[in-house]
Simulated assay, not measured.
Amino acid sequence: MYQLNLDIQDFLTNVWQKKPMVYRQAFKNFADPIAADELAGLACEEEVSSRIVVTQNKGKDWQVVNGPFEDYDQYGEENWQLLVQAVNHWYPDSQPLVEAFRFLPDWRFDDLMVSFATPGGGVGPHIDQYDVFIIQGEGRRRWTVGDIGSHQQRGGNLTSPLIDNFTPIIDDILEPGDMLYIPPGFPHQGFTLTLALSYSIGFRAPSQQELMSQLADYLIDENVGHRRFTSTTDAAGKGVVAQEQQLGMMALIKQLAEDPQYYQTMLGKLLSQNRFELDICESEPVNAEALADAIEDGAILRRIGGLKVLSLENDSQSRLFINGESYSFDAADTALAHQLSDDTELSGDALQVLADSSLQPVLLKLLQQGLFYLAEAE
C-alpha cells in the first residue's frame, strides 16, 4: 500500500494544472514496486511499449532506440535511460502505486511509465501536453523545470519533442520518495546522478483533433448526422461564401457537439480507451452457474491492469463504458454499476449482489473477453 503524503484539497485548488511543484517525501519509506531487472525483462516483450534514450555529444544530443530489446550490454554503464510505458498493464504489483492517485478521475489517467537510468542518462529538455507526477525510487536524479511560454524546438525541427534549453524555475535533486508534479506546457529535463528508478504517473485529456475525429467516426459508424445546411440568404458574390453562411455551416457542427445523443456515446467510448495495449486475461468461458459457484467459494472479481470502467453523469442511457465499448443495465441498478466502476476488485456479498442484478450479463461478457477475471481468495 502506498500512502500519498499530500494535502489533496490544497493541491487541487492551488497547484493542479497551474504550476509545477516538488513534494519532499510524498511517499515515506518508499519501496520500489518493480526491480530494475524486472523492468528490463518487460522491455523484452513485443507487446510492451519501450524505448532507450542514449545521451550523446556530452549531453547535447539524444538517440532514441525503440524496443523490444534482447540485451543491454551494448549501452554500457552510463549515459542511457530505459523507459517502459503502461507498466501497470503488465505488472500487477505496480497497481497499488496507481491507486494512490485515484483522487483524480479515472478518465484522465493515462499510464504508469517506469524508467531505469544510468548516471548521465536522460531524455533531454522537452514539453509534455499532459499532467505528470514523477516519483523518485531508488537513486537520485536532478530535475529542472522552466516556466510556461514560447519555447523553440531544438534545431528548428517542428516534429521533434526536444526544445532548446530553458531558464529553470525549479532546479532540485529528488531522493527516494520525493515527487515532482509538472502541469502541461512546462518545459523540463531530468539528469541522472546515480543508478535510478523513476515512476511517472501521467494524466491526459483529449485534444480538439481527437474529439473531432471521434465524433466523425461515431457519425459514420451510426449513419447519423445527415442534416444539410440550408439558407435563403443571397450570396455575397459569384465566387464568395457569405460570412453568415460560413457561420451557419459551422453551427451544424456545434449543434451535434451539444446534443447528448451524439456526444455522450462518443465521449464514453473515447475516454474509456487506452493508448497502450492491455494484458488480456485468457481464461475458460464462465456461465452464470460457474460464476455463482466461484462466488460461493470466495472468489474475487478483479479488472485487468489499466482497464477503465466509466459512467457519464446525466447519461441519457443506463450504461457503462469499458475499453471503448458500452454495456447496458437496468436503471434500478445504477448504484451497483457505479460500484463496478469505482472498485478495482469485488468479493463476498458485494459481488453476489452484483451477480444477481441486471449487470450479470455484463459481468459474464467481461469475463469472457478477459477484461475481468476471478481470483482465488488470498
Results as ranks from 00 to 15, higher is better:
7 D>Q: 06
14 N>A: 06
15 V>E: 11
18 K>G: 02
19 K>S: 12
30 F>A: 02
42 L>K: 07
53 V>L: 08
60 K>S: 14
61 D>A: 13
63 Q>T: 08
69 F>W: 09
75 Y>V: 03
77 E>R: 14
81 Q>M: 07
84 V>F: 04
95 Q>R: 15
101 F>C: 05
104 L>V: 05
104 L>K: 02
106 D>T: 08
109 F>R: 02
111 D>A: 13
112 L>S: 12
115 S>M: 10
117 A>Y: 11
120 G>Y: 06
125 P>I: 03
133 F>G: 04
139 G>Y: 10
141 R>M: 10
161 P>S: 08
168 P>K: 02
169 I>N: 11
176 P>A: 08
180 L>I: 05
187 P>N: 10
198 S>K: 03
207 S>K: 01
207 S>C: 04
209 Q>T: 09
220 I>Q: 11
225 G>W: 00
225 G>E: 03
227 R>T: 15
227 R>N: 14
241 V>D: 07
260 P>K: 10
261 Q>C: 07
262 Y>D: 05
266 M>D: 07
284 E>T: 12
286 V>Y: 03
287 N>T: 08
288 A>W: 00
290 A>P: 02
294 A>F: 03
302 R>Q: 15
303 R>A: 14
306 G>P: 03
322 I>D: 11
348 G>C: 11
349 D>P: 04
350 A>R: 05
355 A>V: 08
355 A>P: 10
358 S>V: 07
360 Q>H: 10
361 P>D: 06
364 L>F: 09
374 L>W: 07
376 E>K: 15
377 A>I: 02
378 E>A: 13
